[in-house]
Design a protein around this nucleic acid. Structure first.
Length: 480
RNA sequence: GGCGGGGUAGCCAAGUGGUAAGGCAGGGGACUGCAAAUCCCCCAUUCACGGGUUCGAUUCCCGUCCCCGCCUCCA
Protein backbone atom coordinates (compact mmCIF):
# COMPACT_ATOMS: atom_id res chain seq x y z
CA UNK A 1 0.00 0.00 0.00
CA UNK A 2 1.49 3.27 -1.00
CA UNK A 3 0.58 6.78 -1.92
CA UNK A 4 -0.70 7.29 -5.42
CA UNK A 5 -1.08 10.75 -6.93
CA UNK A 6 -2.75 11.87 -10.10
CA UNK A 7 -0.15 13.41 -12.35
CA UNK A 8 -1.40 15.98 -14.82
CA UNK A 9 1.42 15.30 -17.25
CA UNK A 10 0.76 11.58 -17.50
CA UNK A 11 -3.00 11.96 -17.05
CA UNK A 12 -3.02 9.08 -14.68
CA UNK A 13 -2.64 8.13 -11.07
CA UNK A 14 0.94 7.08 -10.43
CA UNK A 15 2.67 5.75 -7.34
CA UNK A 16 4.56 8.47 -5.57
CA UNK A 17 8.17 7.67 -6.29
CA UNK A 18 10.38 10.37 -4.84
CA UNK A 19 13.72 11.35 -6.28
CA UNK A 20 15.36 10.50 -2.99
CA UNK A 21 13.87 7.68 -0.97
CA UNK A 22 12.16 8.87 2.15
CA UNK A 23 12.17 12.51 1.11
CA UNK A 24 9.67 14.67 -0.71
CA UNK A 25 10.33 18.00 -2.37
CA UNK A 26 7.32 20.12 -3.16
CA UNK A 27 7.02 23.41 -5.01
CA UNK A 28 3.83 25.44 -5.06
CA UNK A 29 3.14 28.49 -7.16
CA UNK A 30 2.51 31.17 -4.62
CA UNK A 31 0.56 34.40 -4.62
CA UNK A 32 1.10 37.49 -6.65
CA UNK A 33 1.02 39.91 -3.77
CA UNK A 34 -1.29 42.59 -5.06
CA UNK A 35 -4.54 41.91 -3.21
CA UNK A 36 -6.00 39.99 -0.32
CA UNK A 37 -6.21 36.23 -0.55
CA UNK A 38 -9.63 34.99 -1.51
CA UNK A 39 -11.42 31.71 -0.92
CA UNK A 40 -10.04 30.28 -4.16
CA UNK A 41 -6.48 30.80 -2.97
CA UNK A 42 -7.46 29.11 0.24
CA UNK A 43 -8.25 25.92 -1.61
CA UNK A 44 -4.78 25.68 -3.09
CA UNK A 45 -3.36 26.44 0.32
CA UNK A 46 -5.36 23.78 2.10
CA UNK A 47 -4.90 21.12 -0.58
CA UNK A 48 -1.14 21.60 -0.63
CA UNK A 49 -0.96 21.90 3.14
CA UNK A 50 -2.80 18.62 3.53
CA UNK A 51 -0.54 17.03 0.92
CA UNK A 52 2.46 18.21 2.81
CA UNK A 53 1.12 17.12 6.18
CA UNK A 54 0.12 13.76 4.81
CA UNK A 55 3.54 13.17 3.30
CA UNK A 56 4.96 13.86 6.74
CA UNK A 57 2.40 11.55 8.32
CA UNK A 58 3.51 8.82 5.92
CA UNK A 59 7.08 9.30 7.06
CA UNK A 60 8.57 11.43 4.33
CA UNK A 61 10.98 14.21 5.12
CA UNK A 62 9.29 17.07 3.29
CA UNK A 63 10.82 20.23 1.88
CA UNK A 64 8.06 22.61 0.97
CA UNK A 65 8.70 25.69 -1.12
CA UNK A 66 6.16 28.32 -2.01
CA UNK A 67 7.26 31.43 -3.80
CA UNK A 68 5.98 34.97 -3.66
CA UNK A 69 5.61 36.89 -6.89
CA UNK A 70 6.49 40.34 -5.70
CA UNK A 71 7.08 42.05 -9.01
CA UNK A 72 4.37 42.01 -11.65
CA UNK A 73 2.13 44.31 -13.68
CA UNK A 74 -0.73 44.45 -11.22
CA UNK A 75 1.53 45.27 -8.32
CA UNK A 76 3.04 48.12 -10.27
CA UNK A 77 -0.39 49.36 -11.25
CA UNK A 78 -1.70 49.29 -7.74
CA UNK A 79 1.38 51.06 -6.43
CA UNK A 80 0.98 53.74 -9.03
CA UNK A 81 -2.62 54.28 -8.05
CA UNK A 82 -1.65 54.57 -4.42
CA UNK A 83 1.42 56.61 -5.22
CA UNK A 84 3.72 54.33 -3.31
CA UNK A 85 6.60 52.13 -4.34
CA UNK A 86 5.64 48.69 -5.70
CA UNK A 87 7.64 47.15 -2.89
CA UNK A 88 5.27 48.78 -0.41
CA UNK A 89 2.33 47.04 -1.99
CA UNK A 90 4.19 43.75 -2.26
CA UNK A 91 5.31 43.83 1.35
CA UNK A 92 1.89 44.70 2.64
CA UNK A 93 0.15 41.88 0.85
CA UNK A 94 2.89 39.40 1.62
CA UNK A 95 2.38 40.02 5.31
CA UNK A 96 -1.35 39.84 4.89
CA UNK A 97 -1.07 36.59 2.98
CA UNK A 98 1.15 35.04 5.62
CA UNK A 99 -1.09 36.14 8.41
CA UNK A 100 -4.18 34.74 6.72
CA UNK A 101 -2.38 31.47 6.00
CA UNK A 102 -1.49 31.27 9.64
CA UNK A 103 -5.12 31.73 10.62
CA UNK A 104 -6.04 29.05 8.09
CA UNK A 105 -3.70 26.76 9.98
CA UNK A 106 -1.49 26.34 6.93
CA UNK A 107 2.06 25.54 7.92
CA UNK A 108 4.54 28.10 6.66
CA UNK A 109 6.72 26.93 3.79
CA UNK A 110 10.23 25.77 4.60
CA UNK A 111 11.42 28.24 2.03
CA UNK A 112 9.46 31.24 0.77
CA UNK A 113 11.52 32.64 -2.07
CA UNK A 114 10.77 36.07 -3.50
CA UNK A 115 11.02 36.76 -7.19
CA UNK A 116 12.91 39.97 -6.63
CA UNK A 117 15.50 38.03 -4.67
CA UNK A 118 16.23 35.74 -7.60
CA UNK A 119 16.72 38.06 -10.51
CA UNK A 120 20.28 36.85 -11.02
CA UNK A 121 19.19 33.22 -11.13
CA UNK A 122 16.53 34.09 -13.67
CA UNK A 123 19.00 36.00 -15.78
CA UNK A 124 21.33 33.03 -15.65
CA UNK A 125 18.63 30.75 -16.98
CA UNK A 126 17.66 33.24 -19.66
CA UNK A 127 21.26 33.57 -20.75
CA UNK A 128 21.61 29.81 -21.02
CA UNK A 129 18.58 29.72 -23.26
CA UNK A 130 19.90 32.54 -25.42
CA UNK A 131 23.25 30.79 -25.68
CA UNK A 132 21.49 27.68 -26.86
CA UNK A 133 19.51 29.68 -29.37
CA UNK A 134 16.26 28.87 -27.64
CA UNK A 135 15.56 32.46 -26.77
CA UNK A 136 16.19 35.77 -28.43
CA UNK A 137 16.40 39.39 -27.51
CA UNK A 138 14.48 42.11 -29.29
CA UNK A 139 14.86 45.69 -28.17
CA UNK A 140 15.55 44.79 -24.58
CA UNK A 141 12.89 42.09 -24.32
CA UNK A 142 13.82 38.45 -24.29
CA UNK A 143 11.43 35.86 -25.64
CA UNK A 144 11.43 32.11 -25.37
CA UNK A 145 11.41 30.45 -28.77
CA UNK A 146 8.54 28.04 -28.27
CA UNK A 147 9.11 26.01 -31.41
CA UNK A 148 12.66 25.27 -30.36
CA UNK A 149 11.39 23.03 -27.59
CA UNK A 150 9.85 19.84 -28.95
CA UNK A 151 8.14 19.02 -25.70
CA UNK A 152 6.13 22.20 -25.71
CA UNK A 153 2.49 21.42 -25.01
CA UNK A 154 3.05 18.09 -23.31
CA UNK A 155 1.59 19.18 -19.99
CA UNK A 156 -1.54 20.81 -21.36
CA UNK A 157 -1.82 18.39 -24.30
CA UNK A 158 -1.79 21.07 -26.89
CA UNK A 159 -0.38 20.83 -30.35
CA UNK A 160 1.74 23.85 -31.08
CA UNK A 161 0.25 24.05 -34.55
CA UNK A 162 -3.28 23.93 -33.24
CA UNK A 163 -2.83 26.76 -30.86
CA UNK A 164 -5.07 29.67 -31.39
CA UNK A 165 -2.90 32.35 -32.82
CA UNK A 166 -5.22 35.10 -31.77
CA UNK A 167 -5.28 38.66 -32.92
CA UNK A 168 -4.64 40.04 -29.47
CA UNK A 169 -1.16 38.65 -28.99
CA UNK A 170 0.94 40.87 -26.81
CA UNK A 171 4.10 42.16 -28.50
CA UNK A 172 3.11 40.45 -31.72
CA UNK A 173 5.18 42.86 -33.73
CA UNK A 174 8.40 41.94 -31.96
CA UNK A 175 8.00 38.23 -31.59
CA UNK A 176 9.25 35.81 -34.18
CA UNK A 177 6.23 33.70 -33.46
CA UNK A 178 3.06 34.66 -31.66
CA UNK A 179 3.48 31.66 -29.37
CA UNK A 180 6.74 32.91 -27.97
CA UNK A 181 6.55 34.37 -24.51
CA UNK A 182 8.50 36.97 -22.60
CA UNK A 183 11.10 36.00 -20.03
CA UNK A 184 12.55 39.46 -19.67
CA UNK A 185 10.69 42.71 -20.16
CA UNK A 186 12.56 45.91 -20.90
CA UNK A 187 12.16 48.70 -18.40
CA UNK A 188 9.41 51.21 -18.86
CA UNK A 189 9.51 54.63 -17.24
CA UNK A 190 8.69 54.64 -13.53
CA UNK A 191 8.83 50.89 -13.20
CA UNK A 192 11.19 48.92 -11.02
CA UNK A 193 13.98 47.45 -13.05
CA UNK A 194 17.19 45.53 -12.74
CA UNK A 195 20.28 45.78 -14.88
CA UNK A 196 20.81 42.91 -17.27
CA UNK A 197 22.86 41.94 -20.29
CA UNK A 198 19.86 43.01 -22.39
CA UNK A 199 19.41 46.34 -20.72
CA UNK A 200 17.40 47.35 -17.67
CA UNK A 201 14.23 45.48 -17.20
CA UNK A 202 12.31 43.02 -15.08
CA UNK A 203 11.58 39.33 -15.24
CA UNK A 204 8.49 37.78 -16.77
CA UNK A 205 6.25 35.69 -14.62
CA UNK A 206 7.03 32.18 -15.80
CA UNK A 207 10.77 32.43 -15.48
CA UNK A 208 10.69 32.95 -11.75
CA UNK A 209 9.20 29.60 -10.91
CA UNK A 210 11.61 27.75 -13.20
CA UNK A 211 14.53 29.49 -11.58
CA UNK A 212 13.38 29.35 -7.97
CA UNK A 213 12.17 25.76 -8.00
CA UNK A 214 15.44 24.58 -9.51
CA UNK A 215 17.48 26.65 -7.15
CA UNK A 216 15.80 25.55 -3.95
CA UNK A 217 14.76 22.02 -4.81
CA UNK A 218 17.08 21.10 -7.63
CA UNK A 219 16.38 19.49 -10.93
CA UNK A 220 13.72 16.82 -11.06
CA UNK A 221 12.14 17.65 -7.74
CA UNK A 222 9.14 15.60 -6.72
CA UNK A 223 5.89 17.50 -6.81
CA UNK A 224 4.83 20.75 -8.40
CA UNK A 225 1.44 22.05 -7.32
CA UNK A 226 -0.80 24.81 -8.49
CA UNK A 227 -4.30 25.68 -9.60
CA UNK A 228 -5.70 23.92 -12.63
CA UNK A 229 -5.91 27.31 -14.32
CA UNK A 230 -2.14 27.55 -14.33
CA UNK A 231 -1.54 24.45 -16.42
CA UNK A 232 -1.42 26.58 -19.52
CA UNK A 233 0.51 28.64 -20.08
CA UNK A 234 2.30 29.07 -16.76
CA UNK A 235 3.32 25.52 -15.96
CA UNK A 236 3.83 24.63 -19.60
CA UNK A 237 6.26 27.50 -19.84
CA UNK A 238 8.02 26.58 -16.63
CA UNK A 239 8.72 23.16 -18.05
CA UNK A 240 9.84 24.57 -21.37
CA UNK A 241 12.30 27.00 -19.84
CA UNK A 242 13.87 24.49 -17.55
CA UNK A 243 13.93 21.47 -19.79
CA UNK A 244 15.00 23.37 -22.88
CA UNK A 245 17.97 24.71 -20.96
CA UNK A 246 18.99 21.64 -18.99
CA UNK A 247 17.25 18.64 -20.46
CA UNK A 248 16.07 16.17 -17.90
CA UNK A 249 12.82 16.45 -16.05
CA UNK A 250 11.76 19.63 -14.34
CA UNK A 251 9.22 18.11 -11.92
CA UNK A 252 8.33 14.46 -11.49
CA UNK A 253 4.68 14.96 -10.54
CA UNK A 254 2.16 17.66 -11.32
CA UNK A 255 -0.64 18.05 -8.83
CA UNK A 256 -3.35 20.53 -9.75
CA UNK A 257 -6.35 21.56 -7.72
CA UNK A 258 -9.75 22.40 -9.17
CA UNK A 259 -11.32 25.81 -9.00
CA UNK A 260 -13.67 27.21 -6.42
CA UNK A 261 -16.94 28.30 -7.97
CA UNK A 262 -19.53 30.87 -7.09
CA UNK A 263 -22.76 29.52 -8.47
CA UNK A 264 -21.56 28.00 -11.69
CA UNK A 265 -18.77 30.39 -12.37
CA UNK A 266 -15.20 30.26 -11.33
CA UNK A 267 -14.38 32.45 -8.36
CA UNK A 268 -11.89 34.87 -9.75
CA UNK A 269 -10.68 38.32 -9.17
CA UNK A 270 -11.16 39.29 -12.78
CA UNK A 271 -14.80 38.20 -12.67
CA UNK A 272 -15.15 40.08 -9.43
CA UNK A 273 -16.97 37.38 -7.49
CA UNK A 274 -14.39 36.73 -4.82
CA UNK A 275 -14.95 36.31 -1.12
CA UNK A 276 -12.01 37.31 1.03
CA UNK A 277 -10.41 34.35 2.73
CA UNK A 278 -10.01 36.25 5.99
CA UNK A 279 -13.72 37.01 5.98
CA UNK A 280 -14.65 33.38 5.41
CA UNK A 281 -12.33 32.37 8.22
CA UNK A 282 -13.95 34.78 10.56
CA UNK A 283 -17.42 33.69 9.62
CA UNK A 284 -17.00 29.94 9.75
CA UNK A 285 -13.77 29.27 11.58
CA UNK A 286 -10.75 27.26 10.47
CA UNK A 287 -12.04 23.77 11.19
CA UNK A 288 -15.31 24.09 9.28
CA UNK A 289 -13.68 25.99 6.45
CA UNK A 290 -11.00 23.36 5.99
CA UNK A 291 -13.59 20.61 6.18
CA UNK A 292 -15.51 22.33 3.44
CA UNK A 293 -12.37 22.47 1.29
CA UNK A 294 -11.94 18.78 1.91
CA UNK A 295 -15.53 17.94 1.03
CA UNK A 296 -14.67 17.42 -2.62
CA UNK A 297 -11.75 15.62 -4.21
CA UNK A 298 -9.07 18.19 -4.89
CA UNK A 299 -9.24 18.06 -8.68
CA UNK A 300 -12.98 18.61 -9.00
CA UNK A 301 -14.66 21.99 -8.80
CA UNK A 302 -15.97 23.07 -5.43
CA UNK A 303 -18.89 25.45 -5.11
CA UNK A 304 -18.87 28.10 -2.44
CA UNK A 305 -22.29 28.32 -0.79
CA UNK A 306 -23.24 29.04 2.77
CA UNK A 307 -25.36 25.87 2.98
CA UNK A 308 -22.27 23.81 2.14
CA UNK A 309 -20.29 25.63 4.78
CA UNK A 310 -23.07 24.94 7.25
CA UNK A 311 -22.74 21.25 6.48
CA UNK A 312 -19.07 21.56 7.34
CA UNK A 313 -19.91 23.32 10.57
CA UNK A 314 -22.11 20.35 11.49
CA UNK A 315 -19.30 17.90 10.76
CA UNK A 316 -16.88 19.93 12.80
CA UNK A 317 -19.40 20.07 15.62
CA UNK A 318 -19.85 16.33 15.57
CA UNK A 319 -16.10 15.72 15.81
CA UNK A 320 -15.60 18.23 18.59
CA UNK A 321 -18.57 16.91 20.53
CA UNK A 322 -17.30 13.38 20.33
CA UNK A 323 -13.84 14.30 21.56
CA UNK A 324 -15.26 16.32 24.39
CA UNK A 325 -17.60 13.55 25.51
CA UNK A 326 -14.97 10.87 25.06
CA UNK A 327 -12.43 12.73 27.13
CA UNK A 328 -14.97 13.34 29.85
CA UNK A 329 -15.90 9.69 29.93
CA UNK A 330 -12.37 8.34 29.69
CA UNK A 331 -10.71 10.44 32.33
CA UNK A 332 -7.07 9.47 32.66
CA UNK A 333 -7.49 5.86 31.66
CA UNK A 334 -4.74 4.30 29.53
CA UNK A 335 -6.03 4.21 25.94
CA UNK A 336 -6.41 0.93 24.14
CA UNK A 337 -5.15 1.68 20.64
CA UNK A 338 -6.26 -1.63 19.13
CA UNK A 339 -9.78 -0.32 18.43
CA UNK A 340 -8.41 2.45 16.29
CA UNK A 341 -6.36 0.36 13.93
CA UNK A 342 -8.98 -0.37 11.34
CA UNK A 343 -10.01 3.28 11.30
CA UNK A 344 -6.45 4.39 10.86
CA UNK A 345 -5.98 1.90 8.05
CA UNK A 346 -9.17 3.05 6.36
CA UNK A 347 -8.12 6.66 6.58
CA UNK A 348 -4.68 5.92 5.18
CA UNK A 349 -6.15 3.86 2.36
CA UNK A 350 -8.43 6.73 1.36
CA UNK A 351 -5.67 9.32 1.50
CA UNK A 352 -3.22 7.06 -0.30
CA UNK A 353 -5.59 7.09 -3.22
CA UNK A 354 -4.74 10.51 -4.58
CA UNK A 355 -5.62 12.24 -1.32
CA UNK A 356 -9.25 11.24 -1.51
CA UNK A 357 -10.31 13.62 1.24
CA UNK A 358 -14.08 13.05 1.04
CA UNK A 359 -13.53 9.32 1.42
CA UNK A 360 -11.01 9.96 4.18
CA UNK A 361 -13.43 12.16 6.11
CA UNK A 362 -16.07 9.45 5.69
CA UNK A 363 -13.75 7.05 7.54
CA UNK A 364 -13.58 9.58 10.35
CA UNK A 365 -17.35 9.60 10.56
CA UNK A 366 -17.20 5.87 10.96
CA UNK A 367 -14.61 6.28 13.67
CA UNK A 368 -16.85 8.73 15.50
CA UNK A 369 -19.88 6.47 15.15
CA UNK A 370 -17.85 3.61 16.53
CA UNK A 371 -16.74 5.80 19.42
CA UNK A 372 -20.20 7.14 20.18
CA UNK A 373 -21.44 3.58 20.21
CA UNK A 374 -19.02 2.80 23.06
CA UNK A 375 -19.61 6.07 24.83
CA UNK A 376 -22.63 4.95 26.80
CA UNK A 377 -20.73 2.07 28.36
CA UNK A 378 -17.69 4.27 28.93
CA UNK A 379 -19.76 6.88 30.70
CA UNK A 380 -21.28 4.14 32.83
CA UNK A 381 -17.77 3.28 33.97
CA UNK A 382 -16.95 0.23 31.84
CA UNK A 383 -13.13 0.12 31.98
CA UNK A 384 -12.59 -1.46 28.57
CA UNK A 385 -14.99 0.96 26.92
CA UNK A 386 -13.26 3.89 28.56
CA UNK A 387 -9.91 2.77 27.22
CA UNK A 388 -11.38 2.30 23.75
CA UNK A 389 -13.13 5.62 23.70
CA UNK A 390 -9.96 7.33 24.88
CA UNK A 391 -8.01 5.78 22.04
CA UNK A 392 -10.57 6.65 19.41
CA UNK A 393 -10.71 10.27 20.53
CA UNK A 394 -6.92 10.46 20.54
CA UNK A 395 -6.77 9.00 17.04
CA UNK A 396 -9.39 11.38 15.75
CA UNK A 397 -7.54 14.36 17.16
CA UNK A 398 -4.25 13.09 15.79
CA UNK A 399 -5.63 12.70 12.28
CA UNK A 400 -7.74 15.83 12.26
CA UNK A 401 -5.06 18.06 13.67
CA UNK A 402 -1.84 16.63 12.27
CA UNK A 403 -3.04 15.68 8.82
CA UNK A 404 -6.13 17.72 8.10
CA UNK A 405 -5.14 20.73 10.17
CA UNK A 406 -8.57 21.21 11.71
CA UNK A 407 -7.31 22.34 15.10
CA UNK A 408 -9.76 20.30 17.18
CA UNK A 409 -7.47 20.43 20.17
CA UNK A 410 -7.18 24.18 19.91
CA UNK A 411 -10.93 24.54 19.65
CA UNK A 412 -11.41 22.45 22.78
CA UNK A 413 -8.59 24.17 24.64
CA UNK A 414 -10.04 27.57 23.90
CA UNK A 415 -13.44 26.41 25.00
CA UNK A 416 -11.98 24.93 28.18
CA UNK A 417 -10.23 28.18 29.01
CA UNK A 418 -13.45 30.08 28.59
CA UNK A 419 -15.36 27.49 30.54
CA UNK A 420 -13.05 27.67 33.52
CA UNK A 421 -13.60 31.40 33.70
CA UNK A 422 -17.36 30.99 33.45
CA UNK A 423 -17.54 28.05 35.83
CA UNK A 424 -18.20 29.90 39.09
CA UNK A 425 -21.10 31.73 37.58
CA UNK A 426 -22.58 28.89 35.55
CA UNK A 427 -22.21 26.38 38.33
CA UNK A 428 -24.08 28.73 40.64
CA UNK A 429 -26.90 29.20 38.18
CA UNK A 430 -27.04 25.49 37.53
CA UNK A 431 -27.25 24.77 41.24
CA UNK A 432 -30.37 26.86 41.52
CA UNK A 433 -31.73 25.14 38.44
CA UNK A 434 -31.10 21.76 40.04
CA UNK A 435 -33.00 22.91 43.05
CA UNK A 436 -35.91 23.89 40.84
CA UNK A 437 -35.74 20.54 39.11
CA UNK A 438 -35.70 18.74 42.43
CA UNK A 439 -38.84 20.68 43.31
CA UNK A 440 -40.24 19.67 39.93
CA UNK A 441 -40.52 23.33 39.07
CA UNK A 442 -39.69 22.67 35.44
CA UNK A 443 -40.91 26.01 34.22
CA UNK A 444 -38.17 27.71 36.21
CA UNK A 445 -35.59 25.08 35.30
CA UNK A 446 -36.33 25.41 31.60
CA UNK A 447 -36.30 29.18 31.75
CA UNK A 448 -32.83 29.05 33.27
CA UNK A 449 -31.66 26.62 30.64
CA UNK A 450 -33.11 28.79 27.88
CA UNK A 451 -31.24 31.77 29.21
CA UNK A 452 -27.99 29.85 29.34
CA UNK A 453 -28.56 28.59 25.82
CA UNK A 454 -29.13 32.12 24.64
CA UNK A 455 -25.84 33.04 26.27
CA UNK A 456 -24.07 30.32 24.30
CA UNK A 457 -23.91 27.73 27.04
CA UNK A 458 -25.15 24.27 26.28
CA UNK A 459 -26.66 22.36 29.17
CA UNK A 460 -27.09 18.62 29.01
CA UNK A 461 -28.83 16.78 31.83
CA UNK A 462 -27.41 13.34 32.45
CA UNK A 463 -27.81 10.66 35.07
CA UNK A 464 -24.97 12.22 37.07
CA UNK A 465 -26.45 15.67 36.93
CA UNK A 466 -26.06 18.42 34.38
CA UNK A 467 -23.05 18.84 32.09
CA UNK A 468 -22.42 22.11 30.36
CA UNK A 469 -20.03 23.62 27.86
CA UNK A 470 -19.77 26.62 25.64
CA UNK A 471 -21.35 26.21 22.25
CA UNK A 472 -19.21 26.35 19.18
CA UNK A 473 -20.32 29.56 17.64
CA UNK A 474 -22.82 28.96 14.91
CA UNK A 475 -22.18 31.47 12.20
CA UNK A 476 -24.93 33.50 10.64
CA UNK A 477 -25.97 32.56 7.13
CA UNK A 478 -24.28 34.44 4.36
CA UNK A 479 -26.60 37.11 3.05
CA UNK A 480 -26.74 36.56 -0.65
C1' G B 1 -13.13 25.44 -32.90
C1' G B 2 -8.94 22.78 -29.96
C1' C B 3 -7.69 20.50 -25.21
C1' G B 4 -9.35 18.84 -20.41
C1' G B 5 -12.93 17.73 -16.39
C1' G B 6 -17.89 16.45 -15.14
C1' G B 7 -23.41 14.87 -15.03
C1' U B 8 -24.76 9.45 -8.74
C1' A B 9 -30.98 10.31 -3.85
C1' G B 10 -34.16 16.81 -1.59
C1' C B 11 -28.85 18.75 -1.15
C1' C B 12 -23.35 17.72 -0.89
C1' A B 13 -20.22 13.69 -2.25
C1' A B 14 -17.20 8.76 -2.69
C1' G B 15 -17.07 4.45 -5.58
C1' U B 16 -16.76 -0.49 -8.21
C1' G B 17 -17.32 -5.20 -14.42
C1' G B 18 -21.24 -8.60 -10.07
C1' U B 19 -25.66 -5.35 -8.39
C1' A B 20 -24.69 1.94 -4.89
C1' A B 21 -19.45 4.75 1.09
C1' G B 22 -20.17 8.93 4.13
C1' G B 23 -22.45 13.61 5.51
C1' C B 24 -26.59 17.25 5.65
C1' A B 25 -31.81 17.51 5.55
C1' G B 26 -36.28 14.39 6.49
C1' G B 27 -39.42 10.33 8.92
C1' G B 28 -40.05 6.64 12.99
C1' G B 29 -38.28 4.65 17.72
C1' A B 30 -35.02 4.47 22.44
C1' C B 31 -33.10 7.61 26.35
C1' U B 32 -35.01 12.45 28.97
C1' G B 33 -39.73 15.74 33.38
C1' C B 34 -38.96 18.31 28.57
C1' A B 35 -34.74 19.12 25.84
C1' A B 36 -29.67 18.43 24.24
C1' A B 37 -26.06 14.83 23.09
C1' U B 38 -26.08 9.75 21.71
C1' C B 39 -27.99 5.04 19.86
C1' C B 40 -31.36 1.94 16.60
C1' C B 41 -34.47 1.74 12.12
C1' C B 42 -36.19 4.00 7.39
C1' C B 43 -34.78 7.27 3.26
C1' A B 44 -31.29 5.91 -4.99
C1' U B 45 -34.11 -1.78 -7.93
C1' U B 46 -30.85 3.08 -9.35
C1' C B 47 -26.10 6.15 -11.11
C1' A B 48 -27.98 12.54 -17.78
C1' C B 49 -30.11 10.01 -22.35
C1' G B 50 -29.82 6.23 -26.53
C1' G B 51 -27.24 2.18 -28.41
C1' G B 52 -23.19 -1.66 -28.12
C1' U B 53 -19.64 -5.35 -25.74
C1' U B 54 -20.58 -8.91 -21.63
C1' C B 55 -23.47 -14.32 -18.20
C1' G B 56 -23.72 -9.45 -15.90
C1' A B 57 -22.34 -2.11 -16.77
C1' U B 58 -23.48 3.09 -12.87
C1' U B 59 -18.49 1.30 -13.80
C1' C B 60 -15.76 -0.53 -20.72
C1' C B 61 -16.95 1.29 -26.07
C1' C B 62 -19.87 4.54 -29.57
C1' G B 63 -23.36 8.47 -30.19
C1' U B 64 -26.58 12.49 -28.17
C1' C B 65 -27.81 16.33 -24.67
C1' C B 66 -26.28 19.52 -20.72
C1' C B 67 -22.61 21.92 -17.32
C1' C B 68 -17.68 23.72 -16.10
C1' G B 69 -12.38 24.96 -16.84
C1' C B 70 -8.18 26.31 -20.03
C1' C B 71 -6.78 28.24 -24.90
C1' U B 72 -5.31 36.41 -22.45
C1' C B 73 -4.18 37.84 -16.34
C1' C B 74 -5.87 34.00 -12.92
C1' A B 75 -4.96 29.40 -7.14
Amino acid sequence: MSLVLYDTLRRDKVPFDPRIEGEASVYVCGPTVQAEAHVGHGRLAVVTDVLRRYLGFRGYQVTFVQNVTDIEDKIILKARREQVAPAVVATRYTHLWNRTMDTLNVRPPDIQPFATGHVLEMQGLIQELIDQDKAYEVGGDVFFRVRSFPGYGKLSRRQVDDMQQGEDVVDADRKEDPLDFAMWKSAKPDEPSWPSPWGDGRPGWHIECSAMAAKHLGEGFDIHCGGLDLVFPHHENEIAQHEAAHGGTFARNWVHNGMVRMGDEKMSKSIGNVVALAEALERWGVGPLRLWYLSAQHRTPLTFASERLQDAVAVHQRFVTFVRSARAAAGDVTPDPAVGERHRDAFVAAMDDDLNAPAAVATLHELVSDGNDRLGRATAGDEAARAEVAALAALLVEICDEVLGLGLDDTLAQAAALESRLAPMVDGVLASREKARADRDFATADAIRDQLTAAGIVVEDGPDGPRWYTAVQVPPALEE
